[in-house]
Amino acid sequence: MNRITELFKRKNAILSVYFTAGFPALKDTVPVIESLSAAGVDLIEIGIPFSDPLADGPVIQHSSELALRNGMTLRLLFEQLKDIRRSIQAPLLFMGYLNPVLQFGVEAFCIQAQEVGIDGVIIPDLPFSEYVEEYEAMFTKYGIINIFLITPQTSEARIRLIDEHSKGFIYMVSAASTTGAKAGVTAVQSDYFARVRAMNLRNPLLIGFGISDNETFANACAYANGAIIGSAYIRALEQGTDVQTSTARFVQSILTN
């Protein structure tokens, strides 16, 4: 069984954390993953930096820009991750944009991802229909799960369709926004979360975008199987002194009430 599916079977209130590979320093990719895992994070999203991250707010734009300036590439990322499964059991996801994957070659990307032990990908600008027609068979062949997003504007029929083609979990975007927006859980959002939960989907749900502290995390967990944090962690890395300390402190602040 895929590590993601196995995780959701075993645990609730899942904490998933995103970071940008090659940030703050080029060689920080593996130390960040190890620190997150040691601090008790359940699922780790490794951001593949891109020059034009359309779905991201200023914080992740900035970390991507720095990572690229540090010399990060997809090729180098696979190199950095080649022994990652010796130390890490947690499920690992790639999150990145389609163009770098296309230039790498989609099949080569899947093969290498499987080799280093990546469980799934989130590619926001790979649309659902394109994925199903062009890539689903190949991703499946190499055991790579593709995670889809839904938003407050996604129709019920489309959520059902996405659910049918999903494995692992569905990424429930908290509000119509780019990443890092100030959200919290407003009345409108709790209606949306409750509406989706009431659909009894086949797949579990993680809430992301605007989750930044223990309060927003706990609120999200009341409606879904867990939540995803990105920008707030990037900010903590930016402001902290060393990766281990900042990560331990940040994750602890999310998990303690």
């Binding site: 891109f50 020059s51 359309l54 690229l68 590439t73 090729r75 770098p100 994957v101 296309l102 230039q103």
Partner: peptide, 22 residues
């Protein structure tokens, strides 16, 4: 350029071998 994706469209695109838009 080479074929790539920019602003929601697959088209000819100036980019690095790593797929970063130049």
């Amino acid at each position: 350029g080479k074929p790539g994706i920019i602003h929601g469209s697959k088209t000819m695109l100036m980019q690095t071998s790593d797929g970063q838009i130049t």
